[in-house]
């Protein structure tokens, strides 16, 4: 029936299937963005040449950028570039887009990683507490958080926090990232907290945490609501299952019953949703970065939109799509650990 070899083989098969799937999704995304960028009425050559440029200059730019070639040729050239990691040049900064992305990515990754870890862990813990002790003051509070957090738009939370905690009370900087020079540390990764850690400078760490606080809080408040609510309902469902009662009947401690048996099963939908949330964050971080002038990929995307820097927009779309798909592929690897039945179906 089941032996080790076919299982390993199917694992490999599943992995390659996943990779192929990922490539297809990214290719579709690239194609759609490419098509859109050629459909919109704005003339990229005109934009790139600048407002004062005469018609010949615009034509020269068009030729330079290869925009006078037939669309299929442009498409193939673009895909070919992507395969070698070449996203083209930015019309705005004039440099290779890849350089811009590499420059702004660490700040975004830092913001996303810190926010995500906080709302994932805290959301799970609070959801478990709520499911296990469904009555009491804490349950009322959690219900408020779960409803309000999800209902209030993220820009509203951000602006409110900014006005209140930074503007009025002055506890946190209004906007911007850590200034490495002022904090007296070297810029190694570009992520403030990490650089402060590398430099082992407590004061820089403190500063980095302070600048992170408001944007992180904004993302956490918005996202934790869903995590708490889903964790609660999922675990409450599991705790109602007969196997939980049967485990108690066998004399298992509450900790084992809840944490080993029920929680593991209850985590399944939560992990799915956290994966989606993380995927959304890759694109959804834009608003937060704009509000707090956080110099990450979101702010870069925003500026590119304003300048109709179509190369940069396409690059960011492709990257965030790839990120989204990749995150979900990783989530797919977690499932069989939570529910071994999935392994067989594969």
């Amino acid at each position: 029936m089941r032996s080790a070899k076919p299982a390993r083989f199917s694992k490999l098969a599943r992995f390659s299937k996943g990779a192929a799937w990922l490539a297809v999704v990214v290719l579709v995304a690239v194609t759609i963005t490419f098509a859109l960028s050629r459909i919109v009425p704005a003339d990229p050559a005109r934009l790139a040449a600048g407002l004062e440029a005469g018609p010949e200059q615009v034509e020269r730019v068009r030729q330079d950028l290869g925009l006078d070639d037939p669309i299929p040729v442009q498409y193939v050239r673009y895909i070919g570039g992507l395969l070698t990691g070449d996203f083209g040049d930015s019309l705005r900064t004039r440099g290779p887009i890849l350089d811009d992305v590499v420059e702004s990515l660490p700040a975004s990754l830092e913001l996303i990683a810190v926010s995500f870890s906080i709302f994932a862990v805290l959301g799970i813990v609070l959801g478990v507490v709520w499911a296990y002790w469904p009555r009491g003051v804490h349950a009322v509070l959690l219900r408020v958080v779960a409803v309000a957090g999800a209902a209030v738009p993220v820009f509203w939370v951000g602006l409110l926090l900014q006005i209140l905690l930074a503007g009025r009370l002055g506890w946190f900087p209004v906007a911007g990232n850590l200034n490495h020079e002022a904090a007296g540390i070297a810029e190694v990764t570009g992520a403030g907290l990490l650089d402060a850690l590398i430099a082992r400078s407590p004061s820089a760490m403190w500063e980095a945490a302070r600048v992170l606080f408001l944007p992180v809080m904004t993302i956490v408040i918005h996202n934790i609501a869903l995590t708490i609510a889903l964790m609660r309902s999922s675990l409450a469902d599991q705790l109602d299952q007969e196997y939980v009662r049967a485990a108690r009947a066998r004399g298992l401690s509450e900790w084992r019953v809840v944490m080993v048996d029920a929680l593991r099963n209850a985590l399944n939908p939560v992990v799915t949703m956290l994966g989606l949330q993380l995927g959304w964050l890759l694109g959804g971080v834009v608003i937060v970065e704009v509000i707090f002038s956080w110099p990450g990929i979101g702010l870069y995307a925003f500026s590119s939109f304003q300048a109709f820097d179509y190369n940069a927009i396409m690059a960011i779309t492709v990257l965030s799509t790839a990120g989204f798909v990749l995150v979900n592929a990783l989530v797919g690897l977690i499932y069989p650990r939570l529910d071994p039945r999935i392994q067989e179906g594969g």
Binding site: A249, R264, P340
Partner: peptide
């Protein structure tokens, strides 16, 4: 000791 009605539901399906 306790034996339940449904043998299938008496055990965690994922362990």
């Amino acid at each position: 000791s306790f034996v339940f009605q449904s043998p299938v539901n008496s055990w965690n399906p994922t362990r």
